[in-house]
Every structure is written in C-alpha cells, then in structure tokens.
Amino acid sequence: MTPTRPDNEAAPGPAGECPAPPRTGHWQLCAEFDSAEALHHAVLQVRDAGAREYEVCSPVLTHESLEAHMPRAGSRLHYISAFGGITGVSVGLAMCVLSSLLYGLWTGGKPPVNLVPFVVVGFECTILFAALFTVAGLVYFARLKPLAPPPDYRPGFSNDRYGLYVQCEPARKPAVAELLRAAGATEVIDCDAA
C-alpha cells in the first residue's frame, strides 16, 4: 500500500525545484486561469512539485474546495469573536454595576445592583464587542489596509479570472512557469518584473 501524506503538507519534491521561499507574501510568479477547475488542477500540480508557499486568487468565495490543498486552512477568527463576546458581557455588566454603586438610586424599593435589568445591557454589549472584535480580527488576519493592492495584483481576479501565485528560486522560474502553463495557465507573469 502506498503511504499517503496528509493534506496541507507539501510533498518533498525534487531538490531545488520549488524550495522554501525567502518570506511569505513575496511571490515570484503569478499564473492566470480562466476557470476554477484549471486553478484547482494547477494547485495540485504545484503542490506535488514541492512548492510550500503558494496562494490563489478567486473572484468568488471558493476557498472550501481548495482548503485541503492549501498551505493553511480554516480560520481562528471565531476565538477572537468569542473573546470579544466575553469581554463585552464583562464590560456591560461591570458598567452597570459600578455606575449603580457610584450613584445608588433606591427606586421602588429595588436595590441599586439588580442583575435582571442589567442583562439587557450585558447582552447588547456582548454582541457589540463580539462584532467589533470579529472585524478587528479580520482586518488583522486578512492584512486589510486602505492601500492600493501590490503591483503584481491582476484586476481580472475581481472579475472572472483565477490566479495562482508561487514562490520559487529565481533560477527555477522558467521551469515553474512551464509547469504552470502545462497546468492550463492562460498567462504567467513574472512578479519581480511587475
């Protein structure tokens, strides 16, 4: 029986073919595809060739079908949301309790600290903080900033094109470009020259 390697783990590949990149986010080649199927096929080819860092662009949210073949999968954003919610309920209740203690209003025989009416504020603050933390987490994880996209970004990716960015040694660029073309790329761009 042939041993299988788990997904999300790159194959060793021939030495020097697609070695470890200098740093994440700096791409050498960008290939453009005209369909999700072609992109999917190319991702498998590149992964099997030993590439450890590659990134895809898609005009639609199709990450689920690719997730198993990508260097990283899933998102830990829900932990941030949960943390935000816990912070929110704590802040909401603390605000009510502390302000009631600082300014005690004895109305209708009710004690100043009465949790039942504070539940409403606690609930709303839970939602508010969870939402704020979720968006802050997204901004951080997805590296969102109000700047223009990098020069190697292709406008077609927001229209009907799919992209595959690959990191590789400069000397191996022609070979990797050939591999991408063979996998169905309609165009391969040298990101360093972009």
Partner: peptide, 15 residues
C-alpha cells in the same frame, strides 16, 4: 486593499 486572495477569503467567510 482587498485582492481576492484565499488568505483573505478564508477569514472573510468566517467573519
């Protein structure tokens, strides 16, 4: 700076 990248989509979908 949205670029339709997988790294953005996967967090975006969760958010």
């Amino acid at each position: 700076g949205w670029q339709n990248r997988y790294e953005q989509w996967r967090h975006y979908a969760r958010a």
